[in-house]
Simulated scan of single mutants.
Amino acid sequence: MPSRKKASLFASAFVSCVCSFGMVCVVLATQQWMSSQLRFSNSTVSLTYGLFSGTCEQFVDPGLQVSEKAFQVAGNLGSTKAKSTITAIIVILVLSLLSSLLSSGFTCTNAVSNPYQTFLGPIGVYTWNSLCGIFTLLAMILFPVNVEGHELSVELARGCFPFLQTHVESAHTYGYSYWLMLLILLLNIISAFIIYIYDHARYSKKKEQERPIQNAPKDVILF
């Protein structure tokens, strides 16, 4: 059976990994990634959307609302680059979800068992936590690239209202669904740090037990 200290440390890391898993689920499920105000030469469009769906409203100056409707992100995109990037973000977040799930399983296993000297031990936890963090960071980078570089909001607005004229300017606000990915990164760092504390303590204890004989008392060496 594992020591009480080891069990408590890995149990803490397990809680952190489970929270990370839950946050990835929330990020995928909620549609508050972006709010955009787009000004066109003939009207203004307001968008709120996520990876799968959103809502759009059109206003004709001065402030008269013409229509409001829901839309599917994939269905509104005509640009191959924008659609491919959204698909890549979804796939990356699914991989992040699987990584956090595996990390949770590894930490749970180590909390109730003796230390492994294989990939099932701290090395495995480090690996899956790192992968989850890397995938999440990639998603955080790719989404702004899609919004700014591929004009994602403009594409979605034109999909909602085909008769929009020249695009004049845009204002974007990232929603809580996007910023929750920072919390996922923090939770992965916390999990890895907790395991590092255990691993470092175990290494230090092992080194103490392997002290060279010259550090032993002289009367012990004589015998």
Score class of each variant (00 low, 15 high):
2 P>M: 01
2 P>D: 02
3 S>R: 00
5 K>V: 07
5 K>C: 00
5 K>P: 00
7 A>S: 15
7 A>G: 13
7 A>M: 13
7 A>T: 15
9 L>R: 00
9 L>P: 01
9 L>Q: 02
10 F>A: 00
10 F>C: 01
10 F>G: 00
11 A>K: 04
11 A>E: 04
11 A>Y: 00
14 F>S: 00
15 V>Y: 00
15 V>D: 03
15 V>S: 10
16 S>L: 09
16 S>M: 11
18 V>W: 02
18 V>D: 01
18 V>E: 03
19 C>Q: 06
20 S>T: 05
21 F>I: 03
21 F>V: 01
22 G>S: 05
22 G>R: 00
23 M>K: 05
23 M>S: 09
26 V>E: 03
27 V>E: 04
27 V>M: 08
28 L>H: 04
29 A>Q: 06
30 T>Q: 14
31 Q>S: 11
32 Q>L: 06
32 Q>R: 07
33 W>K: 01
33 W>Q: 01
34 M>R: 07
34 M>H: 12
35 S>H: 10
35 S>K: 14
35 S>T: 14
36 S>Y: 03
38 L>A: 05
39 R>Y: 12
39 R>D: 15
40 F>S: 08
42 N>E: 07
42 N>W: 13
43 S>A: 15
43 S>W: 05
43 S>V: 06
43 S>C: 12
43 S>I: 06
43 S>H: 11
44 T>N: 14
45 V>S: 06
45 V>W: 06
46 S>K: 13
47 L>F: 02
48 T>D: 02
49 Y>D: 10
49 Y>I: 02
49 Y>S: 10
50 G>M: 05
50 G>F: 03
50 G>P: 03
51 L>N: 13
52 F>D: 12
53 S>T: 07
53 S>F: 04
54 G>T: 01
54 G>R: 09
55 T>M: 07
57 E>Y: 07
59 F>E: 11
59 F>N: 04
60 V>D: 15
62 P>E: 10
63 G>A: 05
64 L>N: 09
64 L>Q: 12
65 Q>D: 04
65 Q>L: 12
65 Q>K: 13
66 V>I: 14
66 V>G: 07
66 V>M: 14
69 K>H: 10
70 A>P: 01
70 A>H: 10
70 A>F: 11
70 A>T: 13
72 Q>S: 15
72 Q>H: 11
72 Q>E: 15
72 Q>R: 10
73 V>F: 08
73 V>N: 10
74 A>G: 04
74 A>D: 13
75 G>P: 09
75 G>W: 05
75 G>V: 07
75 G>T: 08
75 G>M: 12
75 G>N: 14
75 G>K: 15
76 N>V: 07
76 N>R: 08
76 N>S: 14
77 L>Q: 12
77 L>G: 08
78 G>M: 10
78 G>L: 09
78 G>S: 11
79 S>A: 15
79 S>W: 08
80 T>M: 06
81 K>G: 05
81 K>N: 12
82 A>Q: 12
82 A>P: 12
83 K>N: 15
84 S>P: 02
85 T>C: 06
85 T>E: 12
85 T>A: 03
85 T>Q: 07
85 T>D: 08
87 T>A: 11
